[in-house]
Amino acid sequence: MRRGLDAIVTVGSLLLCLLLLPTRIPGMELLGIGPNWLLIWVVAWSLNRTVWQGVLAGLTIGIVQDGMSSSHPTHAASLIAVGVLAARLQKQRYIQEDFISVALVVFGMSVVAETVTALQFSIDSLWGDASGTGRSLSEIWTYHQRVTLASAILSSLWAPAIYFPLDRWWGKMNLLE
């Protein structure tokens, strides 16, 4: 019963993040870019979990996002990187739990995720078929600069909205077990 409820909350919150992806609600976008909801979810999931659980979340959600936008290059790479790093941070030891620290972690992770994506595109444009990505190296990194800042700012500002309810819930579930 309790496990079922836990699963519903976990999957439901993830579903909410997935359905928020195509939206661009006024006041929630910068340069046509919205917050990276899935990244926030992966960070929230991984911060209090093991590295393997972080990898699994990154992989699963990355595959889903591939289905929703484009699978080449895959989104799983950046989300796995985020999952691993967030799990390695070991929040209990180094970071206090407050708005600022969570926002900072998400900011950093957004930068990591965008850089991984830009690297994937670069590898494609150097060795893969350039027609698949259509960008030259200089275009990729100019776009990276523009996108990283907007995405990181927005994601970190919206991070507490996803992180705190989920963290509370999972904390309670852990206590009960």
Binding site: L15, L18, L19, P22, L56, L59, T60, I61, I63, V64, D66, G67, M68, S71
Partner: peptide
């Protein structure tokens, strides 16, 4: 979870977009 994600990807996120 992985199988479900694979299905979503295979159908180009059809379930999610319908929702």
């Amino acid at each position: 979870a992985l199988v479900a994600a694979g299905l979503v990807r295979h159908t180009n996120g059809a379930v999610l977009f319908e929702m």
